[in-house]
Design a protein around this nucleic acid. Structure first.
Lengths: 332, 332
DNA sequence: CTGAAAGCGCTTACAG
DNA sequence: CTGAAAGCGCTTACAG
């Protein structure tokens, strides 16, 4: 049987109050009783029950992260940042997989409320109105990361997707590409879909280039979808010399497609990605891509959640292009 | 203020016992009082406090997974399997990053004990003797995944690394390769290092080929280390026609190295990896590799932990080679 | 410096 | 079918 605070109190001939103070390093006891108690603690192998403590203190030193999927290195890196920042603050993190379509979002929101978590981070997902309702009912700190709601004041940390896409497109234009196609993420996705397409379009138009619907093709950010989208793009827009992909995985799919069809990257086709996940440096040719500070975004979200909740700030993280080997400058 | 069971009891003119029964679907109340109570529950927005329940039931419906690192798709996939299996059983999972060298292993073991978790999964890490001591003191279910202890009876689920390495090497030999090099993981790693080298050596010797130390070179399973190890291997063993890498990332590093040096894969150099992470299908040429059922291993670990703890079984999962495009059959 | 006691929000025999 | 009461393992005023 696990020993409790009562056991050590009895064994040390003191009250539980005294044991509690000593174990928690609060003032109020002599060095002598401290030694005696600590000795009993060691002998009995006593460890405090965090559940009981949580009940009286009404907080459990844990936060939850809700994410749509665990696959893909984006989430792994985000999680890494969250867990590291939480550990620094002695918080545990519970991980909830809500499913790609947010199927279990509402369920987890409720369950995490019941678990009395200190706060909830919601990652990269379409925020439906009913989520927002549930969030407000929870009366608990929530922050979004890599997503946001444009209708409600809920803190978020993310990159400016439209601007980042603009930069990436501009990068291609500056290297004299005039026929640029885009591999977009999920069509109709207001978070990471539409804004990136808009940035793409804007950059083209600002440079005096035309933008037509057949220049963009859609997938779901994943590799297989990228393969299909790339085939379709090249078929309907054969004059293209460069591709901007809305995710590294889709960009890598373009690389794979090109290789299979004997198209040399970057000599015959330039490719720029989005995310800068570890994948980008591993492929050949190494991928030039939009860098998102994913790890830092996770860490920042924790900070917002735990220490700056009152401020209700939103944070736009900087993004930039990390140059590698998949984009060529055109000669003419 | 959040309402408690007392609030709804008062509001519904019943005892807390009755509310408890109704909320938990236990027998013992009339349909009429049930309706009345449920109505109050809805009106007050009452949700039970899982912490309080955990205190009396002495279990918290959460398990912990301790892993050395979150980066790399191996861990992401494992985590995915664990989380999915836990969700099925209405368990939450707390994720603890112990650091590559197990720096925080002991700390987390203690903290998770205090959190009264229902069980602990320890993933892919060297198991030091002091861990085992701490594990036994915990008196809580523990299962290892992708690792094990050869000195103590603690359930594990893993692949037979030596055998898998043997198969991979054999695969190369069957395709007429006679000069085969290996990119090993961490030197001295008893879990995923040594056994794979041993399998490699055995396969060579069984085929009547020689095995010499200069045929293997060491990294730490990661991509950058693979690049270095590959350079070194090719320098000291230039006649090689095929490489067996102890991880997909190291195999991909070999692909990258070859590309940079104008060596065509698989025409001039064959490469086989280990893990079959998503990465393997994304690179070009697509990587032939040893498939580990990582997701299933995570799910299995949860099953062992929660439902078959008493049996104390260990499970060796099957592995196989998934053929893609990075290995060629030699002609001569 | 120390202890008795109330209380955190539940569940669960036990009695009716 | 229903309730009074004890108890889960702690923390924290309060009193001395």
């Amino acid at each position: 049987m696990k020993s409790t605070i009562k056991d050590v109190a009895r064994s040390a001939n003191v009250s539980v109050a005294t044991v509690s103070r000593i174990v928690n390093g609060q003032p109020g006891y002599s060095e002598k009783t401290k030694q005696a108690v600590l000795e009993v603690v060691a002998r009995l192998g006593y460890t405090p029950n965090a559940i009981a403590r949580g009940l009286v203190k009404k907080t459990s030193s844990t936060i939850a992260i809700l994410l749509p999927s665990l696959t893909g290195s984006f989430m792994a890196e985000l999680l890494d940042g969250v867990v590291a920042a939480a550990r620094q603050r002695d918080y545990n993190v519970i991980i909830c997989n809500t499913g790609e379509d947010g199927r279990d979002m509402l369920k987890y929101l409720r369950v995490m409320g019941e678990q009395q978590v200190g706060g909830i981070i919601i990652a990269s997902a379409e925020i439906k109105p009913e989520y927002v309702t549930a969030i407000f009912e929870l009366k608990r700190p929530v922050v979004f990361v890599a997503t946001f709601s444009d209708r409600h004041q809920i803190p978020y940390v993310k990159v400016d997707d439209q601007q980042a896409a603009y930069q990436a497109t501009r990068y291609l234009i500056d290297r004299r590409h005039r026929h640029i196609g885009m591999l977009s993420g999920t069509q109709g996705d207001h978070i990471s879909g539409t804004p990136r397409v808009r940035g793409f379009q804007l950059a083209l138009e600002d440079a005096g280039l035309t933008f037509a619907p057949h220049q963009v093709t859609y997938g779901n950010f994943g590799f297989p979808s990228g393969l299909k989208a790339c085939a379709q793009l090249i078929e309907q827009f054969s004059e293209l010399t460069a591709i901007f992909a809305a995710s590294d995985e889709m960009a890598v799919a373009a690389l794979a497609y090109a290789y299979q069809h004997g198209i040399h990257v970057p000599r015959q086709l330039s490719v720029i990605g989005y995310d800068d996940t570890p994948l980008a440096q591993m492929v050949t040719p190494a991928l030039t891509t939009v860098h998102q500070p994913i790890y830092d975004m996770g860490a920042k979200a924790v900070e917002l959640l735990l220490e700056r909740q009152a401020a209700r700030e939103c944070i736009i993280m900087p993004s930039w292009i990390t140059e590698r080997a998949s984009v060529a400058t055109l000669m003419n």
